[in-house]
């Protein structure tokens, strides 16, 4: 593990990703102290002002400070990424473990189900789920979580299948250890590596998905700032107030990029084949 960590830390790009995520998290947490504008305070006399010393990133269609909204929007995005991936991790992990460990018809059924879900276009499923659940932060997270679940189920099942014939699992079973204990104690630690990689990549995808759903008006509700909905509101004003689109768009891009950099670096660090 320390070797992996060292390998990861020596990867400058991955490190840059980590720093970006930390900065983002810091910005999100410290938002109220970094700007004296409220993200929801409207000013009908100062609509769509260009970036200036008064409003660093300009104002939007309701005269709100975009810098403040981008900062507070980081909260939504980070929370969306982390929570929905946690949901997928727990749900998919359980499904994968059960399928991989017990095998047989249960495995077959669960895997056909994940196949079917994977055969859905990701967005279509997310849109449909968001529509079914109704729009709110919480439901958006659930929808993205559900859509992300099959990837984890597949991954965990594959690893569980590979670990099952190993001696230590068989020995534990022979010693009469309870099912759950075997699953958790022995299998989980061995699949942590690939899981971490998948978590960071899925977090990137989840941040993107939240922005997309909000862009379609199915996600976070106004006036709560979300990068996706900010971009959606900006669309009509591209020719007149491009800053409304550019800054939230950049924020999404950088956040997703950061998680992808981390995931990519982790994959390299964990993969024995790419060792130097």
């Amino acid at each position: 593990m320390t070797r992996t960590l060292r390998s990861f830390l020596s990867n400058r790009l991955a490190l840059a990703g980590l720093v970006m995520v930390l900065l983002l998290a810091l910005g999100a947490v410290l938002a109220p102290w970094l700007t004296h504008y409220s993200p929801t305070q409207t000013d009908f006399t100062g609509l769509q002002q260009a970036p200036s010393s008064k409003h660093l990133l300009g104002t939007d269609e309701l005269g709100r400070d975009i810098f403040s909204r981008v900062l507070f929007g980081a909260r939504v995005s980070l929370v969306a990424g982390l929570i929905s991936v946690s949901i997928a991790l727990v749900l998919g992990g359980l499904i994968g473990l059960v399928a991989g460990f017990y095998g047989g018809w249960l495995d077959n059924l669960l895997m056909r189900l994940t196949d079917a879900m994977l055969a859905f276009p990701f967005l279509v499923l997310a849109i449909a789920l968001a529509a079914v659940l109704g729009p709110s932060l919480q439901n958006t997270l659930i929808a993205i979580g559900i859509v992300t679940t099959p990837v984890f189920a597949r991954l965990v099942r594959g690893q569980a299948l590979a670990e099952r014939p190993r001696d230590y699992v068989q020995a534990a079973v022979a010693l009469g250890g309870g099912d759950l204990r075997i699953l958790l104690r022995h299998l989980l630690p061995n699949i942590t590596g690939p899981l971490i990689v998948q978590v960071s990549l899925s977090t990137a995808a989840a941040v993107l998905a939240e922005a997309t759903l909000s862009f379609l008006g199915l996600g976070i509700q106004p006036p709560t700032p979300s990068w996706g909905s900010m971009l959606n509101a900006a669309r009509g004003y591209l020719a007149y107030a491009p800053w409304m689109a550019i800054f939230p768009g950049l924020a999404i891009f950088l956040a997703v990029l950061a998680f992808n950099l981390i995931g990519d670096g982790l994959r390299d660090a964990l993969d024995p084949r790419t060792k130097k």
């Binding site: 269609e61 309701l62 008006g217 006036p223 959606n232 509101a233």
Partner: peptide
């Protein structure tokens, strides 16, 4: 209903 103009309108009412 969803839509940037409607969202803007609703936020004006809200304010």
């Amino acid at each position: 209903a969803p839509g940037p103009v409607l969202a803007q309108l609703a936020q004006v009412y809200q304010a």
